[in-house]
């Protein structure tokens, strides 16, 4: 069957088997291998991508279900050579070790922060509770997301300040 979707800002269409899972479509057909796979039962969350901005387990989604939608994978977080603050946060706070769970964790974090710019530690833990990290013990992931929230808050304040002082347009 034919599927077509926007992946990280680029539209594409492919002829695939109807049963093909989104995770396999992204990894094997589109060759975006940053989305990982770690379980058979929708428990680990290493496969999380965003569909229309919502975190979704791509191992439990048929590629066909994403057809006509907007998919964001970890490869889409960096735009024009500028990292997403979530990526900065994970590096700054040692939010990753082996890096296998990291793409999914970062995408969930991105979706959380888009909804809630200042989440509490409990809200962060809740948001990533459908995902497993076997390496970090989670504290540094929570810190990474808090770091990002603060960095984004500061960036917002900065831009408000720049706008107010009339320097915004040159910034």
């Amino acid at each position: 069957m034919q599927v077509s979707m926007e992946i990280n800002g680029e539209q594409r269409s492919d002829e695939i088997e109807p049963r093909m899972l989104l995770v396999h479509y992204l990894r094997d057909v589109v060759r975006l291998t940053g989305t990982h796979w770690g379980c058979d039962t929708s428990n680990c969350g290493t496969c999380v991508v965003l569909i229309d901005g919502e975190p979704v387990k791509s191992c439990t989604t048929l590629a066909a279900m994403a057809s006509g939608h907007r998919v964001t994978t970890v490869e889409g977080l960096e735009v024009d050579g500028v990292l997403d603050p979530v990526q900065e946060g994970f590096m700054a706070c040692h939010g990753l070790q082996c890096g296998f769970c990291t793409p999914g964790m970062m995408l969930t974090a991105r979706a959380l922060l888009n909804e809630n710019a200042d989440p509490s530690a409990e809200e962060i833990r809740e948001a990533i509770s459908g995902q497993i990290c076997r390496c970090t013990g989670y504290s540094t992931i929570v810190r990474s997301i808090q770091w990002t929230a603060m960095a984004e808050d500061e960036a917002r304040e900065q831009s408000v300040y720049l706008a107010a002082s009339g320097t915004g347009s040159q910034a």
Binding site: R27, R31, L32, T35, V74, L77, L83, M91, G99
Partner: peptide
């Protein structure tokens, strides 16, 4: 010190065995 391995891993550009094609 920040880790040298992170810049590729946070971009999803690591190469795990299943990524080998």
């Amino acid at each position: 010190m920040l880790r040298k391995e992170d810049p590729r891993l946070i971009r999803g550009l690591g190469t795990f065995v299943d990524d080998v094609d």
